[in-house]
Design a protein around this nucleic acid. Sequence first.
DNA 1: TACATTACTTTGAAATTCAAACAAAGTAGG
DNA 2: CCTACTTTGTTTGAATTTCAAAGTAATGTA
Lengths: 138, 138
Amino acid sequence: MPHLDQLNHAIIEFYEKLSSWEHSVVKEIGVTLAHVHAVELLGIHGAMRMKELAMKMSVTTGTMTVQVDNMVKADLVRRRPHDTDRRSILVELTEKGQQIYQNHDALHHDLTQQITSGLDTTQQQALLNCLIQMNREF
Amino acid sequence: MPHLDQLNHAIIEFYEKLSSWEHSVVKEIGVTLAHVHAVELLGIHGAMRMKELAMKMSVTTGTMTVQVDNMVKADLVRRRPHDTDRRSILVELTEKGQQIYQNHDALHHDLTQQITSGLDTTQQQALLNCLIQMNREF
DNA sequence: TACATTACTTTGAAATTCAAACAAAGTAGG
DNA sequence: CCTACTTTGTTTGAATTTCAAAGTAATGTA
């Protein structure tokens, strides 16, 4: 396996570039990176408990509480009581939050189109298969 | 192109998981995420000017100055005058910084091995080609 | 030489984060 | 039931991080 190193390097480089892209895109709107990240998670996975969201964002629940406070003030999300567990609170996107999610997702879509433009259909399919398999192994 | 959406989602999911992994790995050592990120950049790209490092980390140069101050205190990097431009200052890894970079890189290596274990050699080669092409398009 | 630009640092205020303490709700064993 | 323990989310206060703006020194340009 001589190309494992190359593969590793290519993945890291790809991650770095995605990260930079995310930063630059967020700067243009008037929203925090953390807020966009939360909106993205809620848009993809749907309403979530505080704890779940905190874990997915790798912060403590205390930090999450104040972040959600800020996001509520910015009208990005709202809190909703959990159906069966009265300790838990669900966080869900507001209409404005959903709109921001969709805008952001459209940018992601454009980026994906751009960076896969150099690949033919067969390669794109192969890449998709690889990614699906890799996401499973995580 | 019906699978562009799938591709987009797979990429986002992959990025999310890498991000979580990075956080969890860093927590175990006694180093900040920002510090590890800087060490990684310096390890990959070699010594860099403050401005370059700041841009790659998506922060202002002011922030970079205090971050590098902290990293110097932690013996991760050192400052070195630039050869031709006396305004510029090069940041480079210390021995300890290099060691941390290598440890971290080894973990990345293990992760790459793990998540590509479900792929055969042909797929791995295809994936590598795709990534190289995509990194070019960025 | 004079003027503008670039690179970095400093500073002070604002934002973010965490750990710890707390309250309320669920769970398990006797 | 009851008691003890766990889980969930909030609050608090301190520490850290961040940025924008102002300052300094070196470089480029006209």
